[in-house]
């Protein structure tokens, strides 16, 4: 899969509908995602934002009774096509979850896991990838003397940064983040947010968050979902100063949701 697009959009989602059994979870969503930007998705629980996120690397294809229609064009190809290579897709579209979930292995092996799966065996090459990924997440200085120590011995914030490093080690183009700081203390949260700001130099980031202030702080564009519909999608500065839809205003000002 060649990651070259002529437009600024790395994802171009058109008329996306998704059902979990009879439940219509995403309703006709059109959503372009621009390269090397941070796109945030906000909305009350059950609005479809996480479902949408998981569609971008087809994580929800594994769920029974899921039906997806429409187009999710990534780098010019509709990934909903049955021939999509999921391993290859997820190499390009990495994901980080709510809680740091390192494997019960060493710090080094956690980061080297993805590259090894993709066939990289030479120690020197793996070393380079591991160091670079740990530097990218500003964890290198904290762990360089204990790379063989168990990853589960790290603090919560460090574990989450390690998981981001693990996702970066396969050199993805896009990083999906599903509430990456909801289990962290405020300072660890701010560290991750600062990291997101730095990572967008190299990566496209799509983040789901329950924390509206976080969306306001870290993202370039914000999408507001409600009951499976994309209500409003605009520059974050517009969403948080002059939203067009009254439902968006009500949500961001805490008047419902």
């Amino acid at each position: 899969m060649a990651i070259q697009t002529l437009t600024r959009n790395i994802f171009d989602v058109k008329d996306l509908n998704l059902w979990y059994g009879d439940h219509h979870a995403l309703k006709g969503v059109y959503f372009p995602i621009q390269k090397k930007e941070v796109t945030a998705m906000i909305g009350p629980s059950g609005c479809g934002k996480s479902t949408f996120l998981k569609t971008l690397n087809l994580m929800n294809k594994m769920i029974p009774n899921v039906k997806i229609t429409g187009e999710v064009n990534f780098a010019g190809q509709n990934i909903l096509h049955s021939k999509t290579d999921l391993v290859e897709l997820r190499k390009h579209v990495g994901m980080v979850f709510q809680k740091g979930n390192p494997f019960p292995q060493s710090i080094y092996d956690n980061v080297a896991y993805g590259p090894r799966i993709h066939g990289i065996k030479k120690k020197k090459h793996l070393d380079e990838l591991v160091i670079k990924a740990l530097m990218d997440v500003a964890l290198w200085n904290e762990v360089k003397d204990r790379l063989n120590a168990p990853a589960l011995g790290l603090s919560g914030g460090q574990q989450q940064r390690l998981c981001i490093a693990r996702a970066l080690a396969t050199k993805p183009d896009v990083l999906l983040m599903d509430e990456p700081t909801s289990a962290l203390d405020p300072i660890s949260t701010l560290k991750i947010e600062e990291l997101i700001f730095e990572l967008k130099e190299k990566y496209t980031i799509v983040i789901v968050t329950h924390n509206m202030q976080q969306a306001a702080r870290v993202s370039d564009r914000t999408a507001f979902f409600l009951m499976g519909e994309l209500i409003e999608f605009a520059e974050t500065s517009k969403i948080f100063s002059t939203p067009k839809d009254s439902r968006t205003e009500d949500y961001i000002t805490g008047r419902f949701g």
């Binding site: 500003a138 300072i187 701010l190 560290k191 600062e194 700001f197 702080r217």
Partner: peptide, 8 residues
């Protein structure tokens, strides 16, 4: 790591 480098 300055946690508010962007804001600063």
């Amino acid at each position: 790591m300055n946690t508010r480098a962007n804001f600063d």
